[in-house]
């Protein structure tokens, strides 16, 4: 399968990339890892007339803790997250997620920025970022702006990244105290998108009370979904079995899955409930370590 013709530029600075995006207008697209965009172009679901490859721009790829945040550069590849020491030590949710994203070759290319900017509720990082309460830095002609993850996803393949802008950094409030996170998705086979996926983050005080909770759901609604009612029942609670069961039930009720080849609505709601419960238990164990 061959994409429609396009022009290709590989600028070496962010300013140049943004200038090119403005010069070429609406029909220009950013090329990051290319592992969502190139398949879509081959199928001719997307036919940009210009590709602006941002792989040659230095300084967009890093994982570090700074100013109370975990900061991830937009061009950081899945494999780099998998191999990051700080991720291993403090943010195991990313180890859970990346392992289930595609396969090693795809993870050598796919970027975290691209995974979010693609704006697809089937991708796994959106739910992870919702659970972790991330914010996203977007750079344009006028400079940088920050958008909270709850305001980031606008629709199918559309996000807060406007034309002429580049997603440059993902910021996550740094793990502190008894902090635990976990992700799992049910998939039919390696490399498949989620039948349903659940990302969980909890913070627990020394008395065992939940002080903070985040739950994000993958591929069970048109947009990546925050399970708000589930979070509310967790915060302030002692995270008893009954509370966890209630949170899981709310998540299953509040999503809106549609029937497809991966399963019917009832099955997907069931999965959301089960996975929410399991991930909460996993995150709690991790938080208490």
């Amino acid at each position: 399968m061959i994409a429609e013709n396009f022009n290709y530029d590989a600028p070496t600075s962010l300013e140049e990339a943004i200038a090119l995006l403005h010069q070429y207008g609406d029909e220009a697209k950013i090329l990051a890892g290319g592992h969502s965009l190139i398949p879509m172009m081959k199928l001719r679901f997307a036919s940009p007339t210009h590709l602006i490859d941002i792989n040659n721009i230095p300084g967009l790829s890093y994982v570090k803790e700074e100013d109370g945040y975990l900061k991830i550069g937009a061009m950081t590849k899945e494999v780099e997250v998998e191999e990051s020491e700080i991720i291993h030590a403090k943010y195991p949710i990313f180890m859970d997620a990346t392992k289930l994203i595609a396969d090693p070759q795809v993870r050598n290319f796919g970027t975290l920025g691209g995974n979010l900017a693609h704006g697809d509720a089937a991708n796994d990082h959106p739910a992870v970022m919702i659970a972790l309460g991330a914010e996203v830095e977007i750079t344009g002609k006028e400079g940088k702006r920050t958008v909270g993850i709850d305001d980031f996803f606008h629709g199918f393949y559309t996000t807060a990244v406007e034309h002429g802008e580049v997603l440059t950094e993902i910021r996550i409030p740094a793990a502190s105290g008894n902090y635990g996170s976990a992700y799992h998705k049910a998939e039919r086979k390696v490399g498949d998108y989620a039948t349903a996926g659940v990302a969980v983050m909890v913070q627990i005080d020394d008395q065992g009370r939940c002080t903070k909770a985040g739950i994000g759901l993958t591929n069970v609604s048109p947009l990546p979904l925050r399970a708000t009612r589930s979070e509310e029942v967790l915060v302030g609670s002692d995270l008893s079995e009954a509370v966890i069961a209630q949170a899981a039930q709310y998540a299953a009720e509040d999503c809106s899955p549609t029937e497809d080849l991966r399963g019917n609505e009832e099955y997907k709601r069931h999965l959301v409930g089960i996975i929410t419960k399991r991930m909460l238990n996993k995150a709690i164990v991790r938080a208490k370590k």
Binding site: A10, H35, P39, D103, Q105
Partner: peptide, 28 residues
């Protein structure tokens, strides 16, 4: 030809890649 099977796997700077999902110009 859909990034799924790995038959097209090569190494680019030592990293395994599905060459059906990379543009030739990217390998410059």
């Amino acid at each position: 030809d859909t990034s799924s099977c790995g038959a097209c796997t090569i190494l680019i700077d030592g990293k395994s890649a599905k060459s059906c999902t990379v543009l030739a110009v990217q390998a410059q």
